[in-house]
Simulated assay, not measured.
Amino acid sequence: MTMEKILWQQVQLVKQKSPLVHNITNYVVMNNTANALLAVGASPIMAHARSEIKEMIGIAHSVVINIGTLDEYWSESMLLAAETAHSVNKPWVLDPVGAGATSFRDQVLQQLLQYQPSVIRGNASEIIALAKANTTVTKGVDSTAQSNDAVHAAQILMQHYHSTVCISGETDIIISPQQSFFIKNGHPLMTKVTGLGCSATALTGAFIGSVEDKTLGVAAAMALIGIAGELAVQQSKGPGSLQVNLIDKLYNITEEEFIQNLKIEQK
């Protein structure tokens, strides 16, 4: 079976299993993130109250932790969620938004990493900062480095924390001990819509909560949002309509559209 068809199978598995994804994410993107999850067939929960985290994780298929709008209360909730997910062997994704920007973020991230996220997904600057591979400075949540520059940093993170690492960029690079993928889907206009990276992280959570091979799941999630973005751009007048059209395309993308547009290299 071709890799295109294998990844399409992962997309269908999410629809069939409708995984419950517990998100502790930033409030800038909650609505878009929840809609993206619904569009691919998953069920989102947006909950950060410490009193219910353990119960939520008990019923969820996966956990997504995104530190975008970090504060002291949310950081404690995130740490409890990561600890709980790790202790019950529940797959979880870490999105290290703004890693390297402040000492507070870096401190929280170092604590979160101790609970070995199943997947770490961020842009090149964030991955480099997370691994402390060099002194690259993060420009807010936008990347100041190319995804290729972060490959060494991703390998360090993979080895230290036994995580699959996804570097987002013009080429999305997914690195795990077993295999690596390079996906060249997407469109520059997608960078003008806030939180599409956060949506990609949430979709990653849905996929690793549904499929056996977590690396294939990450690749399928990144391929899906990249292809959907490309196709949505064709009928969009700007970032506003792209945001709406992308959700629609995540919902109604066909096997033919997915397979014909996928640009992937496996190593």
Score class of each variant (00 low, 15 high):
Ser75Asp: 09
Val151Phe: 06
Ser180Asp: 12
Val233Leu: 07
Ile45Lys: 00
Ala145His: 01
Thr215Tyr: 12
Gly226Pro: 05
Met222Gln: 15
Ile174Asn: 06
His162Asp: 15
Ile259Met: 00
Asp172Arg: 00
Ile45Leu: 14
Ser125Asn: 03
Thr136Arg: 02
Ser176Lys: 07
Asn148Lys: 10
Thr102His: 05
Ile65Arg: 04
Ala154Tyr: 07
Gln178Gly: 03
Ala81Phe: 08
Val218His: 04
Gln146Asn: 07
Arg105Leu: 09
Thr144Leu: 11
Ala36Met: 10
Ser77Trp: 05
Leu224Trp: 06
Lys184Ala: 14
Leu70Cys: 06
Val165Asn: 02
Gln111Pro: 00
Tyr27Met: 04
Asn35Ala: 15
Ala47Gly: 14
Tyr251Phe: 14
Thr25Asp: 09
Asn35Val: 11
Ser62Lys: 04
Ile53Ser: 08
Ala206Trp: 09
Ser163Val: 11
Ala129Gln: 07
Leu196Asn: 08
Gly197Lys: 01
Ser147Glu: 06
Gly238Leu: 08
Thr194Ile: 15
Ser62His: 03
Leu70Ser: 05
Ala200Gln: 06
Ser62Leu: 09
Ile59Ala: 03
Met46Asn: 08
Asn89Asp: 15
Lys214Cys: 06
Lys139Asn: 13
Ile208Gln: 07
Ala221Trp: 02
Gly100Val: 08
Asp248His: 14
Val233Ala: 10
Glu257Tyr: 02
Leu196His: 07
Leu113Thr: 02
Ser51Ala: 14
Asn32Gln: 15
Ala223Leu: 02
Ala81His: 11
Asp95Gln: 03
Val14Pro: 01
Ala219Arg: 05
Lys17Arg: 03
Ser199Asn: 14
Val28Lys: 02
Gly197Asp: 02
Val151Ser: 02
Asp248Ala: 13
Gln179Val: 15
Asp149Ala: 12
Phe258Arg: 00
Leu7Phe: 04
Val193Asp: 14
Lys5Arg: 01
Met30Cys: 14
Ala124Ile: 04
Gln146Cys: 05
Val141Met: 07
Lys267His: 14
Val119Cys: 08
Ala150Gly: 03
Ile208Pro: 04
Val137Gln: 10
Thr191Ile: 09
Gly195Glu: 09
Gln159Arg: 07
Pro91Tyr: 13
Val11Ala: 00
